[in-house]
Amino acid sequence: MVKELISEYIRSRMEKLNYGTEYYIEFRHLVLQPGQHKDIEAYNDLMVLVEPVEGVNIKSDFGMFDLSFDRIDELQYVHQGFISIHNYSPSLNHVQFVQVTPILKSKK
């Protein structure tokens, strides 16, 4: 996803979801060893993939991102809930996410 678009997407998406500006943004840069599998429990956080990565499979309930997978008709850049990340390439890989955490209304 184009980096300028990400900030605009997050802003408008959170506004539409009635969070307004009540959310935190965190940058997550994951370093995955060859064959490494990593799970992220994101719950209601939005995990926005910053740029396409080759050799990595990112899967959640909301879809999948895998440039080599030929049995999917659309790749998902925004994930939520339980996210499973697998680096199946024989080399080290970097995956960058922007994590958007809404502030709970009861905590305000």
């Binding site: 879809g63 999948m64 997978f69 049995r71 999917i72 008709d73 659309e74 998902q76």
Partner: peptide
């Protein structure tokens, strides 16, 4: 049409 296919 394919095994394990994901359709959006």
């Amino acid at each position: 049409t394919k095994q394990g296919e994901i359709k959006n």
